[in-house]
């Protein structure tokens, strides 16, 4: 058996081992490579920076625990910026499994860090089923969709919600999602209520939303862990996403290496088969 044939029949366990090493090694020995910031991430950051202090913003936690490596750093970086600017934050989720827990935990951690008071500086609406109805219904009355918050407190008893009745009082919507809900935010909330919004999404979803950014239906976009790392740099709070970029660099290089090796082996073995008749 020739060299290239052996390469083409490489046991997949070697591939798995190489991936594991490529991911783990940079976490142990950080490379701290320089990262550029895309215009889409900068636009999102600047849109929130431009809001007057004490404006009300909505931050969504529309993601499952499976993608927290990419999405949660976006939520945290966004909250750094929002709380630093003294914005009032309303959070919600359209994800039943995990969404409420992730939102609750993240909001508590960040509120404690910035000494924010629940009900006054931020409110967690929690989850409600049937997202189309939820997004549409909040345009007329948030209270009709969420009579009470995540913890069962009636909205009327929360000082922040006494001034926020529907989207009219919300200045910006920051969607963090790992699924197609972003389309609904755009087609329902942006298109029908003209609400400015930006999104942080997983890397596989990001290409789709470039068209919305170009059409100015979205102010900005964060794509995957790189988008999260860019936002961490913008808010000057380097954390998990920036650390993770080293691993992602190595994993991408490795996959490209595998693609090249796989193709070379394929063409070399095919050439040999053809020459053998």
């Amino acid at each position: 058996m020739g060299f290239w044939q052996r390469v083409s029949q490489l046991d997949r366990r070697w591939i798995y081992l190489a991936v594991a090493l490529a991911v783990i090694f940079p976490l142990l020995v950080p490379m701290k490579m320089k990262l550029g910031i895309t215009p889409e991430a900068r636009q999102l950051y600047e849109a929130i920076e431009a809001l007057p202090d004490s404006s009300v913003v909505m931050l969504t936690f529309d993601y499952y625990p499976s993608t927290v490596a990419e999405t949660r750093p976006m939520s945290i970086a966004a909250l750094h910026q929002m709380f630093r600017k003294n914005l009032k934050v309303i959070t919600m989720t359209t994800i039943p499994l995990g969404g409420p827990s992730i939102a609750d935990r993240t909001m508590r951690e960040m509120a404690e860090l910035y000494h924010k008071t629940y009900g006054v500086d931020y409110v967690n609406l929690g989850f409600k089923a049937n997202y189309t109805a939820v997004l549409l219904g909040m345009g007329s009355s948030i209270e009709s969709i969420y009579p009470s918050d995540q913890y069962g407190t009636p909205l009327a008893k929360l000082p922040l919600m006494q001034t926020v009745k529907n989207y009219d009082q919300i200045s910006f919507i920051f969607i963090v999602a790992d699924n197609g809900i972003v389309d609904n935010w755009i087609s329902i909330v942006n298109a029908q209520f003209s609400k400015p919004m930006g999104a942080g999404v997983t890397a596989v979803m990001a290409p789709k939303f470039y068209s919305y950014v170009q059409a100015k239906q979205m102010t900005g976009l964060l794509g995957g862990m790189k988008g999260a790392a860019e936002y961490e740099m913008l808010v000057n709070k380097p954390a998990m996403a920036l650390i993770g970029m080293d691993s992602q660099s190595m994993a991408h290089l490795l996959i490209i290496g595998f693609v090249i090796a796989g193709n070379v082996a394929y063409f070399m073995t095919r050439k040999k088969k053809e020459s053998n008749g």
Partner: peptide, 26 residues
């Protein structure tokens, strides 16, 4: 629940690498 879901998703990296080597042909 969260670690199990994250693990399932993370395993995709291994399958993607393996698939890239075996199936992504010019």
């Amino acid at each position: 629940s969260a670690p199990m879901m994250a693990t399932m998703f993370a395993m995709l990296a291994f399958y993607v690498a393996s698939a890239a080597f075996r199936a992504f042909r010019a």
